[in-house]
Design a protein around this nucleic acid. Structure first.
Lengths: 342, 342
DNA sequence: GTGAAAGCGCTAACAC
DNA sequence: GTGTTAGCGCTTTCAC
């Protein structure tokens, strides 16, 4: 039941532990014959060196902590996948911390990750998307980032110079808005999200400015907030449908809410894109799973994760990195948007 | 940049490290005044004890390794969520290992988890769902399970007595089949999955026996395998539609393939459930996100994860546990199935 | 090419 | 109540 150690191996091979360590790490030449003997004993006992002991000494653990708000939202698993593909070849393993966006839980995990001496932290969601984040919460992260490299994904912390990687969400929002305008829509609404979160605010702001740049009016009544869930999209869309004067196209904060919106439209016996054009955001697998396939904005989720890890490893090698790496979003035009019918 | 240690704290407080350790762990009474002084210094430096050193000594790390085949399939994040909710209160953090069902990657992660001395391993997918798993691959897991508690979720390993927790997939498949029969369907097909994986085989087997128990014929031509993806469901369903004599109801291996099937039907301009009844499996959030909302089988994903952790902690406490814990599946009847029209 | 010994940061006897 | 000390299992000088 108990693990064996380098001492056990050394003893059986009649060598010292340092020699065992040398063959384990190939850190100095060892005579072929002794090396073979040691190898064979290692093999015999399926010896696995204790990574804790090694890490204690080397001050690196080969682990990365990833903090995410909602593993249930397909966007985040996609980011994870991208991150993992890059991290695995570099020898890192992930602690996955799901926070539900709850800052208490974030704090808890931050502290655990720090105690476990992860080599780096990738932070998504929660406090880094708050329009105004409490100074204590900011300080918590900046404190930790003075000891452990932290990369913020799609978010930021005021008055901090923590490294960030983001997709240009404002750009994505402009792409969406212009696409709808190009299709002839003049009455465009926005649904979903939370009005104190940056992911929502940024989009609405870009949406408004793009509208006004085209000489269209931004209609605050047509901007409905709730949350990021399918249910919320469904409810908000119902409200939209029941308005006496209503928009002909809807920009949804994410794919989840867009799915909800599409459901609502269909439940009202109307057709997409004939009666409404609907656009999502994130290009999760969901977007191509439904009918009609959804026009949405790719956030390059995979690349986002991959880039975060690349930046993290640069940080670990004390290389210079940009304060902010911005990825280009891409509009994926599919079947949920169409030319305005008169 | 460098972490401080108990020695630094002890020095500044003019006490010994043991006293610091005592207040840290509340493991023996310490005079109020010294305790306060130490606490204050800990606070001042935001001291975080090094979990590696502690774990090295205590032989427990407070970590669990979770191996899953596809984080992108919503079923697995749901299991994770259930597991995490239970593990978090017990003080465990997760290493998340995504394998793509690739056994080489499983081996790699198994070895990493072992080196990192996780307290337990939850294993899903890959080799534990193979109809015939190579003996080396089995041995790898049984070897590890002699040192670290392992729980298999929805799978098994031949000739091993590793603890398992599963939903009764055969029962779920019978529920589905009977539901379709009750609706008057006599011509029922099955799509998706892989014919050398237990999750598929079990379902088909139960499907067949339930059919025959009702005096209906099992039509091998109407059992089409491929994979577990939306795309696969779509392609297989197309084939099904193009058959000259085709079934009126389809049992899909999981929600993903069911979504694909629904897409295919709709692309052919047909209606669900009027032209086809479609049933999924897993009851992922996807099932209620699409139109029509999908009839499917709940695998109690959340409970599955939670139970796995409960069993793991029992194992860690040397408590007795059942070799196999079976959860009852539940048929979720929604809008994608309907009475057969003549 | 190999061994002895120190030390990573912590906890837990064992003294006092 | 508190200090001293011996490890946990590994890597890494520094000798030889």
């Amino acid at each position: 039941m108990n693990h064996i150690t380098v001492y056990d191996i050394a003893k059986e091979a009649n060598v010292s532990v340092s020699t065992v360590s040398r063959v384990l790490n190939d850190t100095a030449p060892v005579k072929k014959s002794t090396k073979d003997k040691i190898m064979q004993i290692i093999d015999k006992y399926q010896f696995q060196p204790n990574a804790l002991a090694r890490s204690l000494l080397k001050k690196e653990t080969g682990t990365i902590g990833m903090i995410m708000p909602d593993i249930t939202n397909p966007f985040f698993p996609e980011v994870f996948l991208g991150a993992e593909s890059e991290a695995r070849i570099k020898g890192y393993t992930f602690f996955l911390c799901n926070t539900s966006g709850d800052s208490a839980r974030e704090s808890e995990y931050l502290s655990i990750l720090s105690e476990k001496r992860v080599d780096g932290i990738i932070f998504m969601g929660g406090r880094i998307n708050l329009a105004r984040c409490k100074p204590e919460l900011v300080k918590e992260v900046t404190d930790i980032s003075s000891r452990i490299p932290v990369v913020l994904v799609n978010g930021q912390l005021p008055n901090s110079n923590i490294v960030r990687v983001s997709t240009d969400e404002a750009k994505g929002a402009r792409l969406v808005t212009q696409h709808l305008i190009d299709l002839g829509h003049k009455d465009i609404g926005f649904i979903g999200g939370v009005d104190h979160m940056s992911t929502t605010i940024q989009k609405v702001k870009a949406f408004k400015s793009q509208l006004e740049d085209s000489g269209l009016v931004y209609q605050p009544d047509w901007v409905l907030h709730g949350s990021f869930s399918v249910r919320s999209g469904e409810e908000l869309m119902k409200k939209m449908i029941e308005m006496k004067k209503r928009p002909t196209a809807i920009f949804c904060v994410n794919d989840f809410t867009a799915v909800g919106a599409i459901k609502a439209v269909s439940e009202h016996g109307m057709k997409i894109p004939d009666d409404f054009s609907i656009v999502g955001f994130d290009d999760t697998p969901l977007a191509t799973s439904i009918i009609p396939e959804m026009t949405t904005v790719s956030q390059k989720s995979h690349e986002l994760g991959k880039t975060a890890v690349q930046i993290l490893t640069k940080l670990l090698n004390k290389e210079k990195v940009k304060r902010l790496t911005l990825l280009e979003p891409e509009l994926m035009i599919r079947k949920s948007t169409g030319r305005l019918k008169n």
